[in-house]
């Protein structure tokens, strides 16, 4: 009986699989334009990157990337349908065409870039795993965590990185595993573990919610590389370029000093040839992308440049920010010693 059932289900799956016709005869850009809005995949709420606000809207730095692409295509940052999808199905939902692009804390790895039929476009945030300890514990380096208990989330690469770090440094760290971020943080606060580990952005977000954020410190060591960036499907070069160069436009605008406030003036009165080329005043740079001449102008006009987005959602000045210092981090502009770098617009 079981065998028959199994055979039947495999047969059914095969029949349906054979019936699958390639539905991407038209390019992603055409599909998106015809639909009238972008379908941008984000995750379940994660502070600073994509979180719900009390008025029901999505906000965050990855959300801003979605809005930037929508602004480049439609000149309307709200022409986006945000698809909040759990991490387990994120690649499936992009691969089967449910989403046009994915913009959610996803680490660029060799495997993901080559074996899923998907491709990474650019890096918009350099994250890395770190540790947070109470200040009065007097710990200054992760190498002093010998024998310590460390709170960690279950089933993530974070947990694996922790064991790797512990083994390669002979630290004998005792992981205390949690399913829920809030429960993990409360256990840490009540002294249930000596330190807590997560991506540094996540640690900063947690810290911002503590009763006394000043009495905790994030240790300098970064034990993993987590370059995060938007993804598209393989095989549509134009679409890949649109997403990739929208991110670059945000970065380049910051480098050139173009902001949301002065972009109109800059376009009317370009201070340099590069600004003129980027904002579409001179040259035909938009042709390869299949967008309007003023696409980069629209992007900056509606969502601001990279620095403005960072300041709003990651920095500590804005009420929506989670308070991660930018100076001295890899997320500073390359001119200020960071890794945030855009190829030239010419």
């Amino acid at each position: 009986m079981k065998k028959i059932l199994l055979g039947m289900s495999v047969g059914l799956a095969a029949a349906l699989g054979l019936a699958a016709v390639p539905a991407f005869a038209e390019s992603t850009l055409e599909t998106v334009k015809k639909r009238g809005h972008l379908r941008c995949q984000i995750g379940t709420p994660s502070p600073g990157f994509y979180n719900l606000k009390a008025d029901g809207s999505w906000a965050g730095s990855d959300v801003a990337i979605c809005r930037a692409v929508a602004a480049a295509i439609f000149n309307d940052p709200n022409a986006v349908e945000f698809q909040s999808v759990t991490a387990t199905v994120r690649f499936t939902a992009l691969a089967n065409g449910e989403s046009d692009m994915l913009s959610r804390t996803t680490t660029w790895t060799l495997y993901r870039d080559t074996q899923l039929g998907l491709t990474f476009t650019a890096v918009n945030f350099y994250d890395g795993q770190g540790f947070m300890v109470p200040k009065d514990a007097g710990i200054a380096s992760a190498h002093e965590l010998a024998g310590a208990t460390v709170c960690v989330l279950a089933g993530t690469t974070t947990e694996l990185n922790l064991t790797d770090f512990s083994r390669s440094n002979n630290l004998d760290i005792q992981p205390v595993v949690f399913e829920d971020r809030n429960v993990r943080d409360e256990t840490y606060l009540s002294g249930g573990c000596d330190a807590v580990t997560n991506d540094k952005s996540g640690l900063a977000a947690s810290k911002a919610g503590f009763p006394d954020p000043g009495s905790h410190t994030i240790l300098p060591e970064t034990i993993s590389k987590e370059p995060l960036g938007p993804m598209t499907r393989k095989g549509d070069g134009q679409w890949y370029d649109i997403v990739r160069w929208t991110v670059f436009a945000l970065i380049n605008a910051e480098e050139l000093g173009i902001t949301q406030a002065n972009v109109d003036e800059m376009a009317a009165n370009p201070p340099s040839p590069e600004v003129a080329r980027m904002l579409g005043v001179e040259g035909e740079l938009h042709v390869g992308l299949g967008l309007e001449k003023s696409w980069a102008h629209q992007v900056i006009k509606h969502v601001g440049n990279y620095g403005e987005i960072y300041g709003q959602y990651m920095g500590d000045k804005s009420p929506d920010g989670i308070g991660i210092a930018r100076e001295g981090s890899p997320n500073a502009l390359w001119t200020k010693g960071g890794l945030i770098y855009s190829p030239p617009f010419r």
Partner: peptide
């Protein structure tokens, strides 16, 4: 929805 509150930077950790 209730879980989403604790991820809003303005109300972070509130659960």
């Amino acid at each position: 929805m209730v879980k989403a509150v604790s991820h809003d930077p303005q109300w972070i950790g509130l659960h």
